[in-house]
Structure formats: C-alpha cells, structure tokens
C-alpha cells in the first residue's frame, strides 16, 4: 500500500521526476493566466444581464435550471419522480463517495474490470451530454 505513495524519498530515486518549483509551478501559472484571461474576456464582453424582477404571479415560459442541473432535470421528466429523487439524492452520492472501496474489492480483481469501468464512464458522459442537449432544446 505504501508502495503507491509518491513520497519525497521515492521520487528522489526517480531520475525522470521533475521539481514542483519551478517546472510544474510554471505550468500551473501559465494555465491559470489563460483561465483568468478567459473569464475576464467573458465578463467584459458578455456581462451578466440583470433580467426582469421576480414576479411570483407570472410564470415565464420554459424555465430551466443552470446547465449543470440539466441532466438530472431532464431525466426526472421520464422516470417516476420518487424513484428519480431517491436515486439522485440518496443512492448516487453515497455510491460515489464509497466508489473507491467498491473498485478495490470488486472491479480491480476482475480481468475486464477497468475496461468495463471506462466504458460505463464514457457512456455516462455521453448520456449526460445527450440529456443536457435535450433539456437545452426544451424537449418534454
């Protein structure tokens, strides 16, 4: 288990290891500068609109949550509500938390475990993008 740790002693024996400072640090700073540039660009050229004041009596057409909720929002339209809620809030988060233990006891012992896992992961991404698109386009 400790063999998996990349401790200072272990890395010192590896001639290919690179110093955090300045080598990796510079890489991080370059990417951070790029991201700062992008958000500054967006905030300057595409400022957030204030929108209409909230009116509890006038429901606007096509209410949508923020983009990162769209997958769940769309899937909840197709599955029984209670089932979807229980899955989203009670089953999925603990499963995600405990996933490393599951990986350790089941997946990595199986020959095709990683292949299956990566396939499920890729399908998950495709599903998420698909339902986000459906929600974005306003499918019922």
């Amino acid at each position: 288990m400790s063999a998996d740790k990349n401790t200072a002693e272990k890395l010192q024996e590896d001639p290919r290891a690179v110093p955090f400072f300045p080598d990796h640090f510079l890489k991080e700073v370059a990417v951070m500068a790029l991201v700062l540039g992008i958000v500054t660009f967006l905030a300057t050229l595409m400022p957030m609109p204030v929108g209409e004041p909230a009116d509890p009596l006038a429901t606007p057409a096509g209410i949508k949550p923020e983009w990162y909720f769209l997958t769940v929002f769309q899937i909840l339209k197709y599955v029984p509500k209670a089932l979807g809620i229980i899955w989203t809030f009670l089953i999925f988060p603990p499963f995600m938390m405990l996933f490393p233990l599951f990986y350790n006891s089941v997946i990595c012992k199986w020959r095709y475990g990683r292949l299956t896992l990566h396939t499920i992961g890729a399908l998950g991404i495709i599903t998420a993008i698909f339902f986000t698109m459906l929600a974005y386009l306003g499918f019922e």
Binding site: A8, D14, R16, F20, F21, V31, M32, V35
Partner: peptide, 24 residues
C-alpha cells in the same frame, strides 16, 4: 519543503484542473 518537492514525470496539463478550480 514546498518548493523542492518533486512530482512524477507523467504529470502533464491534465493535472492542472484542480489548480484552476482553486484559482476560481
């Protein structure tokens, strides 16, 4: 200790997402 520690050679640009999150 902070400046001198080393990172493995395979660390590439994909490893920057966490740092960008901190910046955000």
């Amino acid at each position: 200790e902070f400046a001198d520690h080393e990172v493995p050679a395979h660390v590439n640009w994909l490893y920057c997402f966490g740092g960008i999150t901190l910046l955000c």
